[in-house]
Write a protein that binds this DNA or RNA. Structure first.
Lengths: 193, 193
DNA sequence: ACTGGTATATATCGACACGATATATAGGCT
DNA sequence: AGCCTATATATCGTGTCGATATATACCAGT
């Protein structure tokens, strides 16, 4: 997962570990904690794999390891981004994926959004099943926890539906399946209200 | 974290690993995946620490390792439940804590709820700071992600406020700081609407 | 009685992420 | 000179994850 995030950021511009850490905790900071204990090992893992390489710059070569993404890295990025594994739809994983959605074709985007939606629907059913089964013998706090979880999940699904609808509208509007030049802003605030 | 969850369940009744797994994925199932790869090692860890012990039952002693919580386990449970560590307020950790709130005194409950609230307020500020800083040069998907995250966090805070308010009302109503006999149902649906 | 499927039950593996901590250097302030 | 904060990389131990292996129990269909 970290590999995907790192490659995605390096696609925009080459950076060293510390910069990556700053950038990551800034964009996903509210939800994700990227520790050095995972960042630096992951960087070296990616380098060993040939997905990134060190940049040798004359002026700032002092104590910084600036990494650049390679061709192999680009294809690894695409592979990770579209990965269909079962666990890939958990909250944080999906958030990271969404942050790099611009690198995907519209129909792939829709596919991923719907996969996430199915995951959330499944969660919803599990919550409701638990509520049904253990109803009336459950304590107040657990009940509140589950009910709130139900609401929050529904909100998430509604938000996803908004994203999917917007995506479909675009596919219809500009018929070319390629990379769109300009796109309308995503309608927000409504789905989460 | 798993230790807390296991001890909490064993407080209610003695169980073996498989039953714990069922129970855990049922209550927190929508949000947490408890794998055997962490469950069984944790059980043995707890046993080594003396927090739980095997129950030797004649009839079902065949192939089941039934565990019972010990006195040491009870105090470890209380310790873990009230733990003030920085990372203890992350989403899943808090959910587990809340599931065992009934074992806490009312004022301790309020303290924990307010700690969680502060954590979410902090997240909210981080999100807003990111939105301000990188505004207008951020892609549509990341923007939507952050805005939705903002909304969801606000919802969570509102829900927490409801819980806190209910808790305070009870403290005032029945003046005794001890364990309450019967309590009003927590007003829900409103805070999350 | 045989077979197959599902639920029960425990265990372990490698990979990865986490939190904490150590170690430097650079730059700024007083 | 002394001190603080930001920059920058590295590593350690521990915990969790997903996958997988391996049994046994029980019930259904044939």
């Amino acid at each position: 997962m970290l590999e995907l995030a790192i490659l995605g950021l390096l696609k925009e511009r080459s950076m060293h570990g510390y910069q990556l850490s700053k950038q990551l905790t800034e964009t996903l900071g509210g939800f994700w904690r990227v520790s050095y204990g995972s960042l630096y090992p992951t960087l070296r893992r990616l380098e060993k794999r040939g997905a990134v390489e060190k940049v040798f710059s004359d002026d700032v070569g002092r104590r910084k390891n600036v990494y650049r993404i390679t061709e192999d890295g680009e294809s690894l990025f695409q592979e990770l981004l579209q990965e269909a594994g079962q666990e890939s739809w958990e909250d944080n994983r999906f958030r990271v994926r969404l942050a790099f959605f611009k690198y995907l074709k519209p129909d792939t985007r829709i596919r991923l959004l719907e996969r996430r939606r199915a995951y959330l629907e499944d969660r919803l059913m599990k919550i409701q099943a638990s509520l049904d089964k253990t109803k009336k013998q459950i304590d107040t706090y657990t009940l509140s926890l589950m009910t709130h979880g139900e609401d929050a999940t529904r909100n998430d699904i509604a938000w996803l539906d908004g994203l999917i609808a917007t995506e479909r509208r675009q596919v219809v509007t500009d018929g070319n399946g390629g990379k769109p030049k300009r796109r309308k802003a995503i309608r927000r605030k409504e789905p989460t209200a």
